[in-house]
Nucleic acid binder design. Structure first.
Lengths: 250, 250
DNA sequence: GTATGCAATCTGGTATGACCAAGGTAAGAG
DNA sequence: CTCTTACCTTGGTCATACCAGATTGCATAC
């Protein structure tokens, strides 16, 4: 192959060590001359060919690792991976970690994702998806009095809906965003327990969403889901106002 | 501060060098004990405190760098950054480089983001946003016969809409997704030129979106935008069928 | 001829120590 | 007091070495 030629040309190209190596590998990955499943040559050899030391090469490989494009397997080698969207979780986690005030903003994105996903779900959901949704729904009913379990069941239902949409991208984004929201507002559901009307809202709303999906009505499904979010937001608002004196915690 | 105590505890914690260090820094960043603007202690000292060698420490720092959470400044130090969403572009570029078949899937996510954003835009857009949208609209009209410029104008209008939604998260996601779509289907618009009805569609649709935003009607805005995407998809479908023989490129 | 077992070898994981270049800073000159 | 300069700091890189486990291949046993 023509690898050596390009490597030679790489030597003179600008960049300072790491940048040079990273850019080289990056180009190779993007161009497709390095495809998923390929195993890179040993670090020592690769470092020598690239004209850098092994630590520097490893910095570049490690950088590619966190991007999910390669996998360094101990005592085996470095292999090119099919990019795993799960690394997005890593990023989003960092990206929205500190700013707790962006939770509402992230929530907007979650709504966006779910509303689109529920549309797709209404079109693409399989019988298997229906069953999973049914189960998720049942769990919501079962755990209606349990804050922890209820929160998990709620999240699980929404996750199932998104999965039923069969869009890998939406699934990934939703997963990442959910992670942030769960981390930030873990106890959000607890204060909702105060309202009795809350319980029926939780059950009925989710059931309506389920029905809309089963009924293959994307338009209706989105409307119901959007309503669901709006009502939930309203509950939170009322809870925040009503209890702002009693519990001004964080 | 209590840094030393935690560092000590870190020493015994599981993990093999890099993993250990990365996990430690990760936790520190997420917990907020390391905040944007902070400067880490010198690599040598930090490596010593963490009980690892400098190359390993640098691997961890480099990993955090590609995630955009820290910035290593030559001969200055390592400083914590406010996560820069632009690194998402880096990731998405890799993630969807080879698989051109995921473009449709990514498009679903883009639709999701924009539909939510246009709702917010209808609620939150300022007069300044109106002006920008107006300008973007004018550019679409001007460049209606120019494939390159037209494509840029089209994209710019949509970008302006999302920005008018005032949601940082949506803006970030949209930017990243748009990057992929532009890279993957750069010449997508060219083949649309064949249809004469296309031009009026492009101009009228965008104007309707603009009107809906100015009219402060979220519901209508989303409906129009969704229609816009559907029609565009239809045009592409027709173009693909009609020209599948003539140009079976890629 | 095939199968099994052991050892040389390969590969990543990590540590040390050293050198360079440039930014920062404090001491010294004016 | 100001300005210059020498020194120290700090990241950037390199070369070498050792470890441990995975791999591989050869030799031996069946």
């Amino acid at each position: 192959m023509t690898a050596d030629l390009e490597i030679t040309r790489l030597r003179e190209s600008g960049g300072k060590g790491f940048e040079k190596v990273f850019a080289f590998l990056r180009e190779r990955l993007l161009a497709g001359s390095l495809r998923p499943g390929d195993r890179l040559i040993p670090e020592r050899d690769l470092a020598a060919q690239l004209g850098v030391s092994r630590p520097i090469l490893r910095e570049a490989l490690r950088a590619l690792t966190v991007l999910g494009v390669v996998e360094i397997r101990d005592r085996v080698g470095t292999i090119v991976r099919r990019p795993d969207p799960s690394v997005l979780n890593d990023f989003f986690t960092f990206a929205f970690a500190q700013q707790s005030d962006v939770v509402d903003d992230v929530m907007q994105a979650r709504i966006a994702i779910e509303c689109q996903a529920v549309r797709l779900a209404a079109e693409r959901a399989t019988v298997s998806d229906f069953e999973k949704l049914q189960q998720a729904l049942a769990r919501i009913v079962e755990t209606i009095d349990d804050p922890d379990g209820g929160s998990a069941a709620d999240f699980d239902f929404h996750r199932t809906v998104v999965h039923a949409g069969k869009s890998e991208t939406l699934i990934v984004l939703h997963s990442s965003l959910s992670g942030i929201l769960m981390r930030s507002h873990r106890g959000r559901r607890e204060l909702l327990q105060v309202f009795d009307s809350m319980k029926t809202y939780l059950i009925e709303d989710h059931r309506r969403i389920f029905d809309a999906i089963v009924g293959r009505d994307p338009e209706h499904a989105e409307r119901v889901l959007r309503e669901h979010f709006a009502i939930g937001d309203d509950f939170r608002r009322r809870a925040a106002i009503g209890e702002s004196d009693a519990r001004s915690a964080s």
